[in-house]
């Protein structure tokens, strides 16, 4: 259950931003989680609900945007279908993961004096 450690890193990062901007409160966090990131969104939200208590994030909603995995050919840009061999049939080169491995903090909505 590494989602707890992800939440810990998330809260620490938010805490640093709050201090830097002398914010009074945090209202909302927006994160982006890729399908192939190794993070389970349900576990992440459960971990967040537990871990945010008595932190700067206590009153902050967590918005999670899930990014589906998208493989493509690095040469011709052609899409590789879900479950297919990860190689472009036309160009005969290994596929590239265009998106879907993100574990990103995008935005913090905070209340500043």
């Amino acid at each position: 259950m590494h989602e707890y450690s992800i939440v810990q890193a998330l809260v620490e990062r938010v805490d640093a931003e709050v201090r830097a901007r002398q914010a009074i409160a945090v209202h909302r966090l927006s994160v982006r989680i890729g399908e192939l990131s190794g993070v389970e969104v349900e576990l992440l939200t459960t971990a967040y609900a537990t871990f945010r208590e008595r932190t700067v994030c206590e009153g902050a909603e967590l918005d999670v945007r899930v990014v589906p995995a998208r493989w493509e050919c690095p040469d011709c840009g052609g899409a590789i279908g879900r479950g297919d061999l990860l190689r472009c049939r036309l160009c005969d080169v290994p596929a590239r993961l265009a998106e879907g491995d993100e574990i990103m903090l995008d935005r913090i909505e905070m209340e500043v004096p």
């Binding site: 992800i6 890193a9 998330l10 620490e12 990062r13 931003e17 901007r21 009074i24 409160a25 209202h27 994160v31 993100e102 574990i103 990103m104 903090l105 995008d106 935005r107 913090i108 909505e109 905070m110 209340e111 500043v112 004096p113």
Partner: peptide, 26 residues
């Protein structure tokens, strides 16, 4: 401070981060 009307209420601002959550580990 809310500078729309100058009432002195706190303001909610969106702060764009766009950084890896595990940047510290990296």
């Amino acid at each position: 401070m809310c500078d729309t009307c100058g009432c002195g209420d706190p303001e909610i601002v969106p702060v764009e981060i766009h950084d890896k959550i595990l940047a510290g580990n990296d």
